[in-house]
Amino acid sequence: MNRRPSRSQPRQVAHSAGGVIYRREGPTIYVALIATGGGTRWGLPKGHVFEGETPAAAAQREIEEETGLRGSVLRPLETIEYWFHAGRARIHKFVDLFLLRYEGGTIVPQEAEVDDARWFPLDEAIARATFPRERAVLKRVRAMAEAGELP
């Protein structure tokens, strides 16, 4: 998956944003994950950044669209980048991930793009996350929580 494209393949760049939306119940921190791939892949909600839209605004919008949850952006967490195929083209994708504090809404998966959406205790979310880079971001959030850095 991390192979560089050959010179003969058309290349494109894609930009998405999303992140970790969290809430507290007593000492427990919950984060929302989405399922795709027929419910076989669990990950962070994210999606396309529109022209003229900031990545932070796109993260808020995409999280709300995919999960039904509204949150306030607290800080950027990380930018993940990777390559993938779309038809004959190779896509170089950048995903800006943010930390958001839950402000409201009821968890409802977006029917068109998401198979499921659920709250998970942070440790369970780390164990369930399919993609290693997203697991690393969730571990970073856990370290922030342990250090008292989550409001």
Rank of each mutant, 00 (worst) to 15 (best):
M1G: 10
R4I: 03
R4A: 01
S6F: 11
R7Y: 03
S8A: 14
Q12N: 06
V13L: 15
V13A: 14
A14Y: 00
S16T: 08
G19P: 05
R23Y: 01
G26C: 11
I29E: 14
L33S: 05
G37S: 09
G38V: 02
G39F: 06
T40H: 14
W42Y: 11
W42C: 04
G43W: 05
P45F: 04
P45D: 00
H48L: 04
F50I: 08
E53N: 12
E53S: 13
T54P: 08
E64I: 00
E64A: 07
E78K: 15
T79V: 12
E81T: 09
Y82W: 12
F84K: 09
F84R: 15
H85R: 15
G87L: 10
F94Q: 14
D96F: 02
L100Y: 06
R101F: 07
G105L: 07
T106R: 02
T106I: 12
I107N: 00
V108I: 13
E113K: 15
V114T: 14
V114S: 08
A117C: 02
F120C: 01
D123W: 02
E124N: 06
A127T: 05
A127L: 13
R128Y: 05
R128Q: 11
A129W: 04
T130H: 02
R133G: 07
A136W: 06
A136E: 06
K139H: 09
K139S: 12
R142C: 01
M144L: 13
